[in-house]
Nucleic acid binder design. Structure first.
Lengths: 140, 140
DNA sequence: TTGAAATCCGATTAAATTGGTAGGGTTTCA
DNA sequence: TGAAACCCTACCAATTTAATCGGATTTCAA
């Protein structure tokens, strides 16, 4: 079980934008300087924009900005935007997917684990990461 | 983020074997009757055997048996055997993978989440699933 | 002794996903 | 009006997943 790089790259980008909050739009190139291929990052930022996590300014001097206060953006928001909702197994995602009933003990395990992961992700905000004394000065 | 079917199939198989504990070896075909392609399941049971979770008897009347008490087999054991260790990101798996230091706040998030998932998986045993009043009679 | 039942094992394959790349379109401002 | 910047869709290569195939081996029982 692993995250794709999308989630990681997306988080790096959001962290960068949070650090440069209030400094005006950040160009793709400046965000990409953290080591993510530019054209790929461009796609990923599209996901973040459509999820309402970043806003963009087009044209000369344009770029990307964080769209909400870092305290109001959770890891769950970001991972969701980048990889879609956490679905360990289809059977927890939609009722009646397999022939087994909703009392299936295996399903219960998946459900419990999914809830736990979501909870953990929802507890961490971009703001709390910035507040981390080590994270504050960290250059992603 | 999702599990592959390997993890799910492996868990179904283990649950089946736990339910038929003490009834002698269960043939591949009988285990496969839960809806997993036989030849594929055969491979997967190989993983479980090499992980020490099931034992096998070859030849006529042979088959697969659970190798330990269900209370001593956790979800983590099974998922580990089927999919390898949970590694959300390489940077939590091995030091110095990326150029960022071990104080990287992103890394901290991954690490915390990984720990949480592992803990959750280690808390649920096959035995506890069987004890579930609904799970007891459940035909996987 | 031999044949059937069963697991074991490695090679191959088809489909999906991932991680990009390419190239053009659109907006904005100096 | 042209350069800087984002926007969008299609494409592509590599990897992983989910199988399938074709045997080889083991065991027991008739």
């Amino acid at each position: 079980m692993k995250l794709s790089t999308r989630g990681k790259y997306g988080l790096y980008a959001m962290f960068y934008l949070a650090q440069h909050q209030g400094e005006g739009p950040q160009s793709l190139q400046s965000i990409a300087s953290t080591g993510v291929p530019g054209k790929y990052l461009e796609q990923l930022l599209g996901h973040l924009r459509r999820a309402g996590l970043v806003s963009t300014v087009r044209g000369v001097q344009g770029g990307y900005q964080i769209a909400k206060a870092p305290e109001d953006i959770t890891m769950l928001d970001i991972i969701d935007a980048m990889e879609g909702p956490i679905e360990l197994s289809e059977c927890t995602a939609s009722e009646g997917h397999c022939g087994r009933s909703c009392t299936c003990p295996v399903r219960k395990v998946w459900q419990r684990l999914t809830d736990s992961i979501n909870h953990e992700l929802a507890c961490v905000t971009l703001g709390s990461m910035l507040d981390d004394p080590e994270g504050e000065a960290m250059q992603i």
